[in-house]
Amino acid sequence: MRRIVVHRARGDASSSKILMLHDQSRMNRIYLNCQKPQVGINVVNIRNHFVIISTWLSFGGVILAGFGAFAAGEDATPPAVLTVAAAADLRFALDDLVKDFAEQYPAAKINVTYGSSGNFFAQFQNGAPFDLFFSADIEYPRKLAESGLGADNVFLYAIGCIVVWVPKDSPVAVDKLGIKALLEPSIHKIAVANPEHAPYGRAAVAALRALNVYDQVASRLVYGENIAQTAQFVQSGAADAGMLALSLAVAPQMRDAGRFWKVPLDAYPRMEQGGIILKSSKNLETARAFRDFVLGDHGREVLKRYGFYLPEK
C-alpha cells in the first residue's frame, strides 16, 4: 500500500498555505496551494464573539450549578425528615395521623410514600431508604425482621377489613344483595387490588372464593396496582364495582361517592396490619416517637374512625 505523507511547507501566517505531498520514495511530489476554506458562512449565526462568550458562560454556569447540586448531596434528606413507606389503604388515615403528630411535635417533618406492601417489601430488599414501614400484611415486616433489616420489634397496629363498593349512581343495591351484587348484569368490571403484591387483593380473592362467586366473576376482574388505585378505578366509574379497604370507603373523599357492604370477617384470613422501623434509618428517635404515637390512644382513635379494628393494647 502506498503511503502518502503530507508536509506543510513553509508559508507565511496569511491565509494561503502550501502543502507538499510525496510518497515514500519521494520520487513523486505534489505541491498544493491551499486557501483557507470558507466554512460556515451563514450557517453559523453565532459568529458574533459576544454571543459565543455569553453562551459558553451561561453553559458553564449551568454545568457548575448542576454539579454543585449533584456533589452537595442535597438529596440526602436532613435528619429531621422522617420517610415513611405506608400501605395504600392508610392513605387518608395516615394523613390525619401525620397532621396530628405535627401538632404535638412541630419540629418533625414526615414524608409518606403510599404504595402496595409487596412492592415496598421488594424495594426494601434493594435498599430503599425509608425509616418506617406500615404494611397491610404483618408477614412482610416479619420477613424483614428475619433478614435483619429491622430495628426494634415488629408491631401490630390494626386489623383491616374489606368491603364491596359501588358508585352512588349504580343501580345495584349492594347493601341488600351483599356479595351477590357482583353477579348483577350491570356489573361489567370489578376492581380488586393485584393479589400478587397487595394484601387487600389477596383478601378480596380469598373472600370471593370463600363465598363461592370467584368462578363467575373471575373474567370481570381488573387489577389495581394497589388498593388506592383500585378505589380510584371504581370512584371514577372506570370499573362498576370494587372490593376496597374499609378505611378508604369511609374516607371523606369516598364516603359520599358510593355505597358499600362489609364482607363478613370469616370469609377471608384475618388482615393483620403490622409495621417495623428499619435498621438503616437515620431518624430512629423520630421513628420511634411516631410509631408510639400511632399505637397510642389518639392514634388508635383515629384508626378506629377509619374503620380499622384495633388489636388489644
Partner: peptide, 22 residues
C-alpha cells in the same frame, strides 16, 4: 425511584400519586 418526596418524586409520579389520592 421509590417515589420519595423531593428526591425521586418527579412530576409524572406526582400526578400518578395525586390521582391515586383522588
Amino acid at each position: 425511584g421509590g417515589n420519595l418526596s423531593g428526591i425521586t418524586r418527579t412530576i409524572s409520579i406526582s400526578i400518578y400519586d395525586q390521582v391515586q389520592a383522588l
